[in-house]
């Protein structure tokens, strides 16, 4: 062994880590550019009502969201001011609901499909007409588990 170690310890050559931060930053920027935030932009104003008898929704992947509300200022020119339905990231018609539900269903394993819940995020100023229509469509599509999204009420009625 010793014959391979001639006289004195050699200095450990170190890999320079000075450029590591740069590499990481490059990765970070890469991800920042590539990832699309799935949080779809709301084109309608939704402020859910308050309630006390709340249940928390557990698994997000088993929930699909239907937003109902009036278009925000930027979209009023395009969609008017009467209540509209938003599925995913676009304003849709009631007739689009079955397809929307079906699309979500395919992303869920078959065993868990019975657990799918539809969360209705409805603005408190909307009248029941459109909500009733949506509920009827959900019933016709066999999507019976529904959650009326609401915030916790703190003060008394």
């Amino acid at each position: 062994m010793s014959k391979f170690k001639p006289g004195g310890q050699k200095e450990d050559p170190e890999v320079s880590t000075a450029s590591l931060p740069d590499i990481i930053f490059m990765l970070l920027f890469f991800f920042m550019v590539v990832t699309v935030m799935r949080e779809s932009e709301l084109k309608i104003r939704v402020s859910t009502p308050q309630a006390t008898e709340l249940t928390k929704l557990q698994e997000k992947s088993l929930v699909n969201y239907i937003h109902i509300g009036r278009p925000t200022k930027n979209y009023q020119e395009q969609y008017g001011t009467s209540p509209k339905i938003q599925l995913g990231d676009k304003i849709s018609d009631i007739e689009d609901i079955p397809l929307f539900l079906e699309n979500h269903k395919t992303s869920v394993p078959e065993k868990l499909q019975f657990k799918i819940t539809t969360s209705l995020k409805v603005d408190s100023d909307v009248t029941m007409g459109i909500v009733t229509d949506v509920k009827e469509k959900l019933r016709k599509s066999g999507q019976l588990k529904v959650n009326y999204s609401a915030k916790k009420r703190t003060e008394d009625l």
Partner: peptide, 18 residues
């Protein structure tokens, strides 16, 4: 940054079959 910590709660109902 990417994960949303928005917790959804509401009144759970079971609609009658159509």
């Amino acid at each position: 940054v990417t994960t949303t910590i928005l917790e959804d709660s509401g009144i759970l109902v079971k609609l009658p079959e159509w």
